[in-house]
Design a protein around this nucleic acid. Structure first.
Lengths: 242, 242
DNA sequence: CGGAATGTTGATTATATTCAACTGTTGTGG
DNA sequence: CCACAACAGTTGAATATAATCAACATTCCG
């Protein structure tokens, strides 16, 4: 990641001129969708947009978080790093996804690194308007609480699978989750190295696991596209009980 | 506390009413401490106490959660189970601890098994008064949101350590956390089998790890008591950077 | 096009699990 | 209060899973 060192962490776009885009992204944030017109306007007035290039760190672990972050376009990863460079991806963000609500509500340091995986348009809602709104609007703070509760339960589930499933099972489940709504072809949303980090294995291991599945005629891999040939077989490997 | 265990006011299992104890436990729940007198009274009016014996399942994974659960006395574990019986303890609860806020706010099935590790007095606050209060009281729902955000960040940290640290490092950190405020002796809050499950290893592995630490003269083990002889050495093993 | 990033493959190693046999501890009912 | 069964913990050997190391192939942007 030489790139990260040379380039600035991010580039702020021109003053909040793109109010429409900002409004669209902010109103898509968890908890913000039910806001009254003028409340939304106030939040948007404090928020801003920024652009991040592939490989750029949007927020670094341990730094003060600039606010709730929503992805207007592009993609990013939330990662836990060890000093040596080993990384575990907690979540992959696509357009419309967001993160940072917990840290923003408490005004705590960011618990993860956030790195753009492609050129991305990012909306930032700083802590102040969020906290002020939460203090006076029960509907809003309840919506925030619900959003946080949702994420919390997701994370418990994450802990369950990383702790109790083998790499093969985690991969099988991950492929299943990518298939939701798709016909039979899952497109990996990131490089295999990143998918591996998302699954909590090394890229070499992911390579072997994909091969193992291909060998059993459960999938067929072509670059980032994974065709699922045998959904039942995949479900069996995922550990779905009878 | 011992007193309560030896001579509990109520020896019957199942719902028990004791307004004073209920008030004490409920007002200690995260988010409930700032409640106005009459709001607290209303919540307490809907809540109840129950007693659980060692080994009894208080809530089973997947069942509807009866509400936010606070431990008046005793201890319990929150565990993730695999069908085969393998278990991972997410959190150990002692007197004053609580759980279930996320699932209660969303009225979702309980994501873990809750099992008493000793005779325990348990307060249950059902979803209804929590949700009603949250809808009309911004202070309260914000407090709930903060409590959830707190737990969320804790869980991220948990994920970080289980994913990126070796068993030895996790044990070292766990011992450090038990030392907070203590002189130099940590008392394990549960059986070694349960501690092992808490750390994400098997009991055989924990036994060997404790031996490894003892061999290096970092600790001395006598039953559930672990004397830390070398805090610096422990910190080094825990991976605390320079 | 060229060079860096990404991905594959094989050999080796580390960490923790599993299996098995055994000892120690505890709580309960006779 | 003791006997005894159930549970808790220890230890050693064999094993499994994934990491690490190293060399090479491929892809993809810039």
């Amino acid at each position: 990641m030489q790139q990260e060192l040379r380039a600035p962490a991010y580039t702020t776009l021109g003053p909040v001129r793109d109010r429409r885009l900002l409004e669209r992204v902010v109103s898509g944030l968890p908890g913000f969708s039910q806001l009254a017109r003028h409340d939304l306007a106030e939040v948007v007035a404090h928020a801003w947009l920024m652009e991040a290039r592939r490989g750029q760190a949007v927020v670094k672990c341990g730094e003060r978080i600039p606010g709730v972050i929503g992805l207007g376009s592009g993609s990013a990863k939330l990662t836990l790093r060890r000093p040596n460079g080993e990384e575990r991806i907690v979540r992959l963000l696509g357009a419309g996804d967001s993160f940072g609500l917990a840290a923003t509500v408490l005004d705590r340091p960011c618990p993860v690194d956030v790195v753009a995986l492609a050129s991305s348009m990012i909306a930032v809602v700083p802590p102040m308007p969020v906290q002020r709104l939460a203090e006076r609007d029960a509907r809003f703070s309840l919506a925030v609480a619900r959003a946080l509760a949702e994420r919390f339960l997701d994370l418990v589930d994450e802990l369950r699978s990383t702790e109790q499933l083998s790499g093969l099972q985690r991969l099988a489940r991950y492929l299943q989750s990518l298939l939701r709504g798709e016909d039979g072809v899952a497109r990996l949303p990131a490089t295999k190295t990143n998918i591996a980090a998302r699954l909590g294995v090394k890229k070499e291991t992911l390579s072997r696991l994909l091969h193992a599945l291909a060998e059993r005629r459960v999938i067929e891999v072509r670059g980032r596209d994974v065709a699922v040939l045998d959904r039942t077989g995949l479900a069996a490997l995922a550990g779905d009980e009878v």
